[in-house]
Nucleic acid binder design. Sequence first.
DNA 1: ACCTCCATCGTGAGCGTTCACGCCAAGTTT
DNA 2: AAACTTGGCGTGAACGCTCACGATGGAGGT
Lengths: 332, 332
Amino acid sequence: MKRATIEDVAALAGVSRQTVSRAINDKGEISPATKEKVMAAVQQLGYQPNRQAQSMVTQRTQTVGLVIPDISNLFFPEVARGVQDTARKHNYNVLLCNTDDDPDEEIRMLHSLAAQGVDGIIIIGNAADQVTTQTFADSYGPIVMVNRFFDHPNVNIIIVDNEQGAFLAVEHLIQQGHVKIGMLANKNFSRSQVRRVRGYEKALTENGIPYDEALIVGASPTLEGGYNALNQLLGEHPEITAVFTYNDLMGIGAIRAAHDLNKRVPQDLAVVGFDNIGLSSIFIPSLSSIHVDKYEIGQRAMNRILNMLDTPNKSFAPIELPVTLIPRESST
Amino acid sequence: MKRATIEDVAALAGVSRQTVSRAINDKGEISPATKEKVMAAVQQLGYQPNRQAQSMVTQRTQTVGLVIPDISNLFFPEVARGVQDTARKHNYNVLLCNTDDDPDEEIRMLHSLAAQGVDGIIIIGNAADQVTTQTFADSYGPIVMVNRFFDHPNVNIIIVDNEQGAFLAVEHLIQQGHVKIGMLANKNFSRSQVRRVRGYEKALTENGIPYDEALIVGASPTLEGGYNALNQLLGEHPEITAVFTYNDLMGIGAIRAAHDLNKRVPQDLAVVGFDNIGLSSIFIPSLSSIHVDKYEIGQRAMNRILNMLDTPNKSFAPIELPVTLIPRESST
DNA sequence: ACCTCCATCGTGAGCGTTCACGCCAAGTTT
DNA sequence: AAACTTGGCGTGAACGCTCACGATGGAGGT
């Protein structure tokens, strides 16, 4: 069974293609009577316009690319849902790309998305070849970056208040009486990584605790990364009684590592994470964290893309999302 | 900067469009010399063929739809990665759709994918309006279903050995000395749900333990669902010493619930889950589970789609994936 | 010298839309 | 009554590509 074309509808309704088009996209210039007639024919044939053909002439594919490190990382599914749900509301499709934090892979993904002809791109995460990004921003449509910085008329940014979040987390640990506070950081360079370290440092120094880089150990921002990093940190600095981790996955990995070392959490080691993923409230002990509205990030990113598409030359203010501390069992 | 077209390349290389096309898709009928010349022009202009235009004539969009309940559910990201990585290797794109286990939403998604013109569809999970599926299978391209059954030449299926998995899980609990074994089931109807209950029943009866439906309580297959379900089950049947859960998320929810009831796992309550998601080995206590190769599911589903696309009239055997028991702290 | 043949390349059409026009009749103005 | 407007609709072209042909030319055979 072949798919109906606009021509078929036109024939059945006894009008021209253009009239059918007018009826469907109701851009006026059509009488109610003929419109009804056309719509009946559309219904009867189950006609749906061919997206590819539409794209050819409108130069819009109704598709955006979403580039993330890894959808298996618990942070990103929620963001992706935010993007997808919003996209779908506006008849947009989302092409998901995983970079695994590999800059080369990211570049490949960007090229692939360009070839596919997406209307806009949302990029989250670390990797970033500045040159490629520049090229894209110059010759391409709207780009929204999350937790990354890039100054370009085609590029908008969304950031969460990483420094403040880290500050709140560490200050909380200090208020609980901790002094020897380590940090499990992200070994990959990223803007959020830098800001979270800065917040960590700020909380310490503002409370008269010397900042010691040796207490920061980097690892991959995963369960395993956190597990290994805590072992390393406690091996080198057994005096530590609390850790702030780059994200919740590392925090949970750290709790597990402490458990395997026969250390009780929080009595022997307090842990505070970042991102407040769904798992953290369930884990035993539940993990204190900095709440970030991940779904909202996705929503706002997608909406921003749509706005930029609507008004190409308007410039938009960066979006900064607030964070809050959620104290739980792992630190109280 | 406008994107280069095939015409631009042709002009620069001093040949015709067709020759450029021949050079790019190397379908023979071209001399090495001109091919080289064309490729140089392609390189120089950074030419990439327009996908929409290609689709118009080839009737292939190089895109497949992946319909899942919810990407936030830890089971699906791995499957999605399997699909995406495989797709990307073959120059395919993946359109991800979340149904939230809502049959109406699933139907809407299928229509949306049809309108988009995907080359094939992969569907995972429960919901299923038989009529719509039938319509699609009839008029549409290849469909691969995971853990669902549908007999149709256009439809291929991939199933994991759910019954055997459940059997292994429950038998394991019995071997640990448990007799009062409950089950936290999926309240949504699904093929895997039915099979896992059957495996549960089989293990009990084969070991001379009476099967009692009252020991099965249904809930949504999530952390919260497992949490609530265990509370309910222990409220009604405090004699229970072990539970088999529909999936790992429910298992972890159950462990958390037991913890909040001051029950020790596994001493007071043993738990075995299903799916072996990455989290289960990290959780405290780590969760025994039935291992399912989720990434492989995605890979095979995508490959099967490609096979069906290549040889439209060939019929393929269903794929059945084995499962294995991974005993961990929660039951030993 | 002629014809044949194959390798190489170009030409027109068409995929299904939308956009910029142009046309026509009926109503409105002067 | 002639001229002007306007709502309603149709026509050709264009988007960028591939496919089925047709054209060309030089190598080879007779």
